[in-house]
Nucleic acid binder design. Structure first.
Lengths: 113, 113
DNA sequence: CCGGATCCAGCTAGATACTG
DNA sequence: CAGTATCTAGCTGGATCCGG
């Protein structure tokens, strides 16, 4: 009996793995509104996140094929990030996720109080 | 200027945190088909996952309010897990996520080959 | 049958410093 | 402006053993 590797076969396990990064969903959300530059992205991220972390997460998402990095040869440098084709399709997940997330926050407030 | 804590305020960051567990989505998917006992759950999980890990993840999801644990006082013991009310609402996310996950797997196969 | 307690290894986010 | 290199601390998944 061989090992049951579900990554690449099960949509849930595969999606889970892609979304492990602590900020991946929020990054994808910001990118879902259009191409955005590195610094602008960082400014919109929570303060506790450093540019090192952001850079690493972006690289991971790029390697996974969800986002596309475009570098314009200028001085000063200009780099833009945007969703790839598969990344664009993820928008549908984001919209449903937003609805659920808001409901969950409501739930949290009800029980915490 | 105070710290911008987005958990509990931003739906994406909040959802992300809830779904950090390595198997959370897959567990929620299995539970989305109805109440299920511990052992049955474990049997449906990938082999590489031990009961210790499963137990811990279930406890986390229970604490987060996504699932409900019901213990029947019997010999031998019988424990069932099912989705809570907020957990049930997560099904909509799961269905969209499945669609995207499958598309992403297709994408992976196209590029890897 | 359904776990808890413990320990350990690996990952990864964050801090800091440096660069074209 | 947009990063990389390096180091560290903390989390967490997995293994093993014990228990009601």
């Amino acid at each position: 009996m061989e090992k049951k590797e579900l990554f690449g076969r099960c949509p849930y396990v595969t999606a889970q793995k892609v979304l492990t990064g602590k900020w991946s969903m929020y990054i994808l959300y910001l990118l879902s509104e259009g191409a955005i530059r590195f610094n602008e992205l960082q400014r919109r991220m929570p303060e506790e996140m450093t540019h090192t972390t952001l850079s690493r997460q972006l690289k991971t998402l790029e390697k996974e094929g969800l986002i596309i990095r475009t570098e314009y040869q200028q001085i000063p440098p200009r780099v833009e990030y945007r969703l790839s084709e598969v990344g664009e399709k993820f928008k549908s997940v984001l919209s449903v996720l937003k609805i659920w997330g808001d409901e969950y926050i409501l739930y949290l407030n009800k029980t915490k109080k």
